[in-house]
Design a binder for these strands. Structure first.
Lengths: 338, 338
DNA sequence: CTGAAAGCGCTAACAG
DNA sequence: CTGTTAGCGCTTTCAG
C-alpha cells in the first residue's frame, strides 16, 4: 500500500524517452508525434501515471481550482446551485474548493487569505452575507470574481442575478389583480441587493396600482425571523396577501399561517415566494413563486468567470436572467391572468 | 491591478534576511527568534505576502485538500453535512474540494483520477451511489478514505454511520407498540448499507414481535420513486403505518397520502422517517423520525480521517453513532411510550 | 519533433 | 538560531 508516487520521470524511463516528452504528451496543444504519444501513454498506463496538478500549477500559474464562497446551505436554492456549479465546472476541467463563511466581518479577511493561499483561478460568491468587500478585494488582487445571485453598485464587479426589480413588480401586479386589499411584504435581508431590489420592485408595483402595503417587515432570509415576523404581522394587520422575499422563508410563513394561526392559504391569505426551489412544487406547500432559473444562472456565471480567467482585463458585466411567475396553489389567481 | 505575485523572496529582500528564514516564520513549529519573526511578519504584511499552499504541498507532500465525493445534494441531509464538514475542516486548516459523481459506473474511474490529480490528502465519500469500488481503490492507492453514512463489508475501510439496524428495529417496536396492524416499509436504496440495514433491522423488529409487514417496496432514496411506490402500496394494501427509509422520501410519501389520496397522517396512516433533517421539524410535516446526529457523525468522520492522514497505517475503524427516535406528530404514539 | 536545462515558490536538511 | 543548498514534479524556452 501507499506506493511511492509515480512521476513523469518514471514514465520517461520506462518509455525510453525524455521527461519533457512525457510532459508534452500530457499537455494539451503541445506538439508530439503519434508514435511518441502512443509509447508514452502505454508506459503511463502501465505505471498508473497521472500528472500532478499542483506541480503543474506552480509553473503555469493556474490551479484549475475555483473558490466557492458560501455562507449557508440551509436555503435549498444554494445546494442546488452548488451541485450545478460543480458539475458544469468539472466538465471544464475545474473543481470547486468550498469556503464557508459565517458572513461576519472578521470572517471575510480569513476567507480572502485562504482563497489566495490556494491560488484559486477564480471565485464565485453565492450567498447573502458575503459583503461587497470580499469581492472588491479579491478583484483588486487580480483574481476574477463573479457574484452569483447578488448584485452591487460597483461596476467593476461581474454579477449574475435574476431581474429582481421586475420580479418584485410582477408579483405586486399579480397580487393586486387578484383583488387583494391588505398586502404585506416579508422582505429578504436588506443588506443584499436581491432583498432590496425585490422589495423596491414590489413597492413600485403596488404604488403604480395606487395600493399601499399594510406592512413591510424584514425576514433577513431566515426562516425563524420570517416566522416571527408573520406572527406580529397577523396580530397587527391581518393581511390578505403576503409576498415573501424567498421560498425558504415562505415555507416558514405558510407553516405559521396554517398551523399556528389556523388560517387557510390561500383562502384567508395568499402567499407568494421567490426562487422556485424544488420544494416549492411539493404538494404540502404548492407555492406560487417567481422562478429564478438556476440552471441558466449557473451557466452564465461559469461562462463569465471562465471568460475573465482567460482574459483578465475583459470588462465586468452585470447579467440579468429573466424568470417567470409560476402559478401554483398558495395564492388566489386573478380572473383571466396570463 | 493583477499585481505581480509576491513571493517569500520579496519578503526576504525587504526584511533583509534569507528566504528560508521567511519560510520558517510561516512554518508552524520551526525555530525562529522572536525578533526575526517580527521583522519578517512586518515585511510580509507590508507586501501582503502569503505562502503559496500549492508550492508548499509540492515538497511536504500534503495538499491540505480533502476530496468530498458526493452524488446528490437533493436530500437536505447532505448539504447540512457538507456545511459542517467544511466548517470543521477549515478549523483544522483543510479545505474541501468537491467531486460530483452521477454515481454511474464510468464516472467512478474519472472521479478517482481527478482525486489523484489534485493530490488530495484524504477522501470523504458521502452519498448513496458511491460504490465500494471507489473507496477500495483510493484506499489501495494510499489515500485515506472514510465512508460517511455508508458502510461496507470490507474491513479495511473506515466508516461512520448511525446504528441503522438498531434504528430500524426501534421503529418496528414503536409502530407495533402503537397498535398498528398493517405495517409497510418503503425502503432506501438496497445497493447501500444504510438502505439494507434499516430494512433488515426493521423486519427483524417486526418479526420479534410476531408481525408480518403487509408490504416492503423500494424507494431508492428518490422522492419520486417513493411517491409512486406509495400510490401502489395504498391501492393494494391499505397500510396503517409506513416506515420510510429516509426523511427525504418520507416527505414525498406524506404528500401523496394527504394530498393525492386524501388521507390523514397520522389519523389513517402513521409515517416514520429516518435522519431528522431540519425540515422534519417543520409544522407542515412534523415528522416522527430516527435522528442521525449529523454533527457527531461529521466530527467523528473528520477525526478518523485526520488520524489516518497523520498515521496512514492505523487500522481502519467502523464507528456507529447512536441516534434517538424523535417523536412528532406524523405517527400515533403508543400509550406510555418512553 | 525531441532532449537538455532552467526554473515555478517553497521546505528541509545541512553547516555554521 | 540563521543562511546556504538541494530539490518537490512539472512546463517551457532553447538548441539540435
Amino acid at each position: 500500500m501507499a506506493e511511492r508516487k509515480v512521476t513523469s520521470l518514471d514514465v520517461a524511463a520506462l518509455a525510453g524517452v525524455s521527461q519533457s516528452a512525457v510532459s508534452r504528451v500530457f499537455t494539451p496543444g503541445a506538439s508530439v508525434s503519434k508514435k511518441m504519444a502512443a509509447r508514452v501513454r502505454d508506459a503511463a498506463n502501465e505505471l498508473g501515471y497521472r500528472p500532478n496538478v499542483l506541480a503543474r500549477s506552480l509553473i503555469t500559474g493556474r490551479s484549475r481550482i475555483i473558490g466557492l464562497v458560501v455562507a449557508y446551505l440551509e436555503n435549498p436554492f444554494y445546494p442546488d446551485a452548488l451541485e450545478r456549479f460543480s458539475t458544469v465546472l468539472q466538465g471544464e476541467g475545474y473543481h470547486i474548493l468550498v469556503f464557508m463563511t459565517s458572513g461576519a466581518g472578521e470572517g471575510v479577511d480569513r476567507v480572502i487569505e485562504e482563497l489566495m493561499d490556494y491560488q484559486v483561478d477564480g471565485i464565485i460568491t453565492a450567498s447573502v452575507g458575503m459583503s461587497d468587500d470580499l469581492a472588491s478585494r479579491c478583484s483588486a488582487a487580480g483574481i476574477p470574481v463573479v457574484l452569483f445571485n447578488r448584485g452591487q453598485a460597483d461596476d467593476r464587479l461581474a454579477q449574475v442575478t435574476s431581474d429582481n426589480i421586475r420580479g418584485g413588480r410582477r408579483i405586486a401586479e399579480f397580487l393586486v389583480a387578484g383583488g387583494h386589499k391588505r398586502i404585506a411584504h416579508v422582505a429578504g435581508w436588506q443588506g443584499s441587493s436581491t432583498g432590496r431590489d425585490r422589495k423596491d420592485g414590489f413597492l413600485a408595483g403596488l404604488d403604480a396600482a395606487g395600493v399601499m402595503p399594510v406592512s413591510v417587515v424584514e425576514g433577513e432570509y431566515s426562516r425563524e425571523v420570517a416566522a416571527e415576523a408573520t406572527r406580529a404581522l397577523w396580530a397587527e394587520h391581518k393581511p390578505d396577501a403576503i409576498f415573501v422575499g424567498n421560498d425558504h422563508m415562505a415555507f416558514g410563513v405558510i407553516d405559521v399561517l396554517r398551523h399556528e394561526l389556523g388560517l387557510s392559504v390561500p383562502g384567508d391569505v395568499s402567499v407568494v415566494g421567490y426562487d422556485d426551489v424544488p420544494m416549492a412544487g411539493w404538494a404540502a406547500y404548492d407555492l406560487t413563486t417567481l422562478r429564478q432559473p438556476s440552471g441558466q444562472m449557473v451557466a452564465r456565471t461559469v461562462e463569465m468567470l471562465l471568460e475573465r480567467i482567460g482574459s483578465p482585463d475583459v470588462a465586468a458585466r452585470k447579467e440579468m436572467i429573466e424568470g417567470d411567475l409560476i402559478l401554483r396553489g398558495s395564492a388566489r389567481v386573478p380572473e383571466g391572468w396570463t
